[in-house]
C-alpha cells in the first residue's frame, strides 16, 4: 500500500495544488507587471497593473504564511509516518526512506527563506512613493516561482518513492559516527571542536551585529545555522533526551519532549533568517534593513534555550553526559 493515501499526505497535496494555482496566477500577473510597468504612463493599463500588484503581494504573503504552517505540518507528518515505516523511530528514518528526503527538507526551508526575503523587499517597496522596487521584486518572484516548481516536483518524487514495506534505519544508525554517510562523517567532528566553534560564532555574530556590519553578520549567520544544527544533533539533543547515545534532530519534535523541537528550530531559523535577509537585501537591492536586532534576539533565545538543557542537567546530576 502506498503511503500516498494517508490523510496527511492528501492534505499536503491539496495545499500544494492550491498554492500552485494561486502562485501560477501570481507569476502570470507578475510577469505582465515587470514587463509593462511604467510609472510615467497615465494609461488605464498602468493603473490596472498598479492594482494587480496588491493581488500578487497578497497571494505571496499568504503563500508564505501557509508555507510556514505546511512546513511544520510536513515535519509533523514525517514524524507520524515513522509509525508505518518499519525501522523508523522518528522523522529521520522517514527522511532517509528515499534519497530525496534530505533535499526536500532543505529545499522547503530554503523556499521559505526566499518567500520571506520577498516580503521584506515588498515592505520596503510599499514605504516608497515611487514604486522603487516594484519591477525588481516581481522579477525576483518569477525566480522564486521556478524554485517552487522544483520543490513540488522533488516532494512528489520523494513521497512516491517511500515504500512502507522496506526497512529503513532509525536515527540511532544514521547519526552514528561509525556511519560512512555524509551526515555520519560530519558528526565525526568531535564536540570539542563543534561546541567552541558554535559559541565562538555566536559571540562574533553579536559583535558584528552591534557594529551593524550587515555583510559579516549575514555570512556568520549562515555558519551559525550550520553549526547550530550540528551542535543540536551531536551535543544538545543528547541532553534533551538525557541519553548520551541518542543523537537525533527529529525525536525532540515528538510529544515525549513536549514538542520543544518546534520552538528550538523556530528560534534558530527566525534568527538566522533575519540575519541572512539583511545581507541578501543589501547585496541585491541595496536596501538597508533594520532587522539585526530581531536576528540577535532570536539567536540569543536559541542559544539560551539549548544551553539550558545541559546546564540544568549538570545542576541536577552533578555530572556531564
Amino acid at each position: 500500500m502506498s503511503i500516498l493515501l494517508s490523510p496527511e499526505i492528501i492534505i499536503i497535496f491539496i495545499e500544494d495544488v492550491l498554492l500552485l494555482g494561486f502562485n501560477s496566477l501570481a507569476v502570470f500577473l507578475a510577469y505582465g507587471i515587470q514587463q509593462r510597468f511604467d510609472l510615467n504612463q497615465t494609461t488605464a493599463l498602468q493603473y490596472r497593473l498598479e492594482r494587480q500588484t496588491y493581488l500578487v503581494s497578497t497571494i505571496i504573503r499568504f503563500s508564505l504564511f501557509i508555507k510556514i504552517f505546511s512546513f511544520a505540518f510536513f515535519i509533523f507528518t514525517l514524524d507520524k509516518l515513522s509509525n508505518f515505516i518499519p525501522g523508523a523511530m522518528c522523522g529521520v528514518g522517514v527522511t532517509n526512506a528515499s534519497p530525496y528526503g534530505l533535499y526536500v527538507l532543505l529545499i522547503k526551508l530554503f523556499s521559505i527563506y526566499l518567500y520571506g526575503f520577498w516580503l521584506l523587499i515588498d515592505r520596503e517597496d510599499q514605504k516608497t512613493e515611487n514604486y522603487n522596487y516594484t519591477v525588481k521584486k516581481f522579477r525576483y518572484f518569477i525566480a522564486i516561482y521556478l524554485f517552487f516548481l522544483i520543490e513540488l516536483s522533488l516532494q512528489y518524487l520523494y513521497l512516491s518513492d517511500i515504500n512502507p514495506e522496506e526497512i529503513v534505519s532509525c536515527c540511532g544508525t544514521v547519526f552514528n559516527a561509525a556511519n560512512t554517510s555524509f551526515t555520519g562523517q560530519l558528526l565525526k567532528i568531535p564536540n570539542g571542536i563543534v561546541l567552541p566553534s558554535f559559541y565562538a560564532i555566536f559571540v562574533l555574530l553579536i559583535w558584528t551585529s552591534l557594529r551593524r556590519d550587515v555583510i559579516w553578520t549575514g555570512i556568520l549567520n549562515l555558519f551559525f545555522l550550520a553549526f547550530g544544527l550540528l551542535a543540536m544533533i551531536s551535543f544538545f539533543s543528547t541532553y534533551i533526551y538525557e541519553l548520551p547515545s541518542h543523537q537525533c534532530p527529529f525525536c525532540l519534535l515528538q510529544s515525549d519532549y513536549f514538542y520543544v523541537g518546534y520552538l528550538i528550530y523556530a528560534l534558530l531559523l527566525s534568527g538566522t533568517f533575519f540575519g541572512v535577509a539583511a545581507l541578501f537585501l543589501k547585496l541585491f537591492y541595496g536596501i538597508q534593513l533594520k532587522v539585526l536586532k530581531l536576528s540577535i534576539l532570536f539567536n540569543l533565545a536559541f542559544v539560551i534555550l539549548v544551553s539550558a538543557y545541559p546546564l540544568f542537567y549538570y545542576i541536577r546530576n552533578g555530572v556531564w553526559l
Binding site: 497615465t42 494609461t43 510599499q126 512613493e129 515611487n130
Partner: peptide
C-alpha cells in the same frame, strides 16, 4: 489619477503616487 498634467496638494504632487 489624471491622464495628463499634475495635481499638487499642499505642495506635493499626487498625480503618480501609489
Amino acid at each position: 489619477k489624471p491622464s495628463r498634467g499634475d495635481v499638487i496638494i499642499d505642495g506635493k504632487s499626487i498625480a503618480k503616487i501609489p
